[in-house]
């Protein structure tokens, strides 16, 4: 159970709630036993679809019921006209959509949607994408929905540039949207397979992420992305990445002047200097000493870091 607050209630209220709870249990158990009875007969039919639907409306986590529905659809494939099956699958997509909007984090429901969508002769991928837009507006970090989104893109052949634009939009709405930063990091290397192109793009990204880190310097999302940019650009063969990192050092020094006690610019500056191989180790030591005082929880991490030059 997640996020269920324990509330103190009066005895009277507790009794009332208990009556309600008992009634709910009774109803649910009836629905389930009806389903189990029908399933045990072994007939895969429309009645099975109807009865199992009721169970799932109560409890979409009951994975065996989704399995049963798939058994029915597979059976229909061999026994019903193609058009009829397609019609039922379309209806199923509607039903799942209702379920998903009520239970946005059920692995089983999302999987079932994938299963049905690839069996549709003409899945309306644009509509699927719309559903993702809608759900990710409600919960920007829902990783089930992000996964489904990637699945839809792959199936529909959506251009990567469009998805890249979406991550820009989501990040500009909220710099803390780490899911969008993640998505961006996996798109860029695919979009720019040539080293020179990638180098230019990453340079652009350094500029772009700067806006985020200056606006929300305490937000780790953009800093982790920044760290990734550093790690990626230095791996590009025959490029002058050190110049890029040097200009980052200047920028971040500027930020530290404004935010002297914020850990993230200090940490990033430290890793940049390590990357650039600064000669004067006291520069590194000064930074790590500061981190040890403002970020006490991770002191042992910093102690292990300083061993690299001590």
């Amino acid at each position: 159970m997640h996020g269920v607050l324990k509330v103190k209630t009066t005895e009277e209220k507790a009794r009332e709630l208990k009556v309600k709870e008992l009634l709910k249990i009774k109803e649910y158990k009836e629905v389930v036993s009806k389903f189990q009875e029908h399933k045990s007969v072994g007939v895969l039919d429309q009645i099975g679809l109807d009865i199992s639907k009721t169970v799932l409306e109560w409890n979409p986590e009951y994975y065996t019921v989704w399995n049963y529905r798939r058994d029915i659809f597979n059976h229909f494939d061999n026994t019903l006209e193609k058009e009829k099956v397609q019609e039922l699958l379309t209806k199923e997509m509607k039903f799942i959509e209702e379920c998903i909007q009520r239970f946005t984090k059920s692995y089983w429901v999302w999987f079932h949607r994938k299963w049905v969508s690839v069996r549709l002769e003409k899945c309306d991928w644009a509509r699927e994408l719309k559903l993702c837009y809608k759900l990710l507006d409600l919960d920007l970090r829902n990783f089930h929905c992000w996964s489904y989104r990637r699945f839809v893109e792959e199936r529909s052949g959506m251009p990567m540039e469009k998805e890249f634009g979406y991550t820009t939009e989501k990040i500009e709405q909220n710099f803390s949207n780490y899911s969008a930063w993640h998505q961006r990091s996996s798109l860029i290397p695919q979009m720019y397979p040539q080293p020179e192109q990638l180098f230019e793009k990453l340079k652009e990204e350094f500029e772009w992420v700067r806006n985020a880190v200056f606006t929300e310097p305490k937000d780790q999302s953009c800093w982790i992305y920044h760290k990734w940019l550093v790690g990626t650009i230095k791996k590009i063969p025959n490029c002058n990445y050190k110049d890029v990192l040097l200009s980052e050092v200047d920028e971040i020094n500027g930020l530290i002047e404004i935010e002297p006690d914020c850990k993230w610019p200090i940490y990033t500056l430290l890793t940049l200097k390590m990357e650039l191989g600064v000669q004067d180790k006291s520069e590194l030591q000064e930074l790590v000493d500061k981190l040890k005082t403002i970020d006490r929880e991770r002191i042992n991490y910093y102690l292990s870091l300083e061993k690299q030059w001590q």
Binding site: F143, W146, S147, R150, H182, S185, I224, T232
Partner: peptide, 15 residues
């Protein structure tokens, strides 16, 4: 992933 963490399937966010 880019952050050294792992996701459910290739391409999925670290968790």
């Amino acid at each position: 992933n880019f952050d050294a963490g792992y996701g459910c399937i290739p391409g999925a966010e670290s968790h």
